[in-house]
Amino acid sequence: MTNSNPVKIVMVEDDHGHAKLIEKNIRRANISNEIKHFDAGQPALDYLFSAEVLANGPLLILLDLNLPDMSGIDILAEVKRDDRLKRAPVVVLTTTDDKTEIQRCYDLGCNVYITKPVDYESFAAAIRQLGLFLSVMQAPEIE
């Protein structure tokens, strides 16, 4: 990742515990990018569609599907429908491993779908691997 264009991570996760654990494990993978956390869908959407996002270059979205005010799938659909945001990589990180849900997410343009393992070791490992993945991944510019 280039320092001139740091990728901002937008995390939409209603469970603060999860958010904390995800952040911890991402940091453990030596990812120091800014992580912007939202615990509900609407504020996240407001932020994503604000002028600030345009000015701040590439971003990556970490998305939970079970949100209190809306389904993460709605956010995914909104993002992928938007001409500017649709190139932003979306990683769905959720507890649901229902086949139809997974299919729907990929159909809507989700880039990676990860099921949160209950077992913490696996969970931590998964998140660290995601961090490693993020460190080599190229995110497109938001224009």
Partner: peptide, 17 residues
């Protein structure tokens, strides 16, 4: 069952922490 899993992730995670 999914909603039960969600807090369980926390319990396990923070126990490890």
């Amino acid at each position: 069952s999914h909603d039960l899993r969600s807090p369980l992730v926390n319990v396990m995670g923070f126990t490890s922490e």
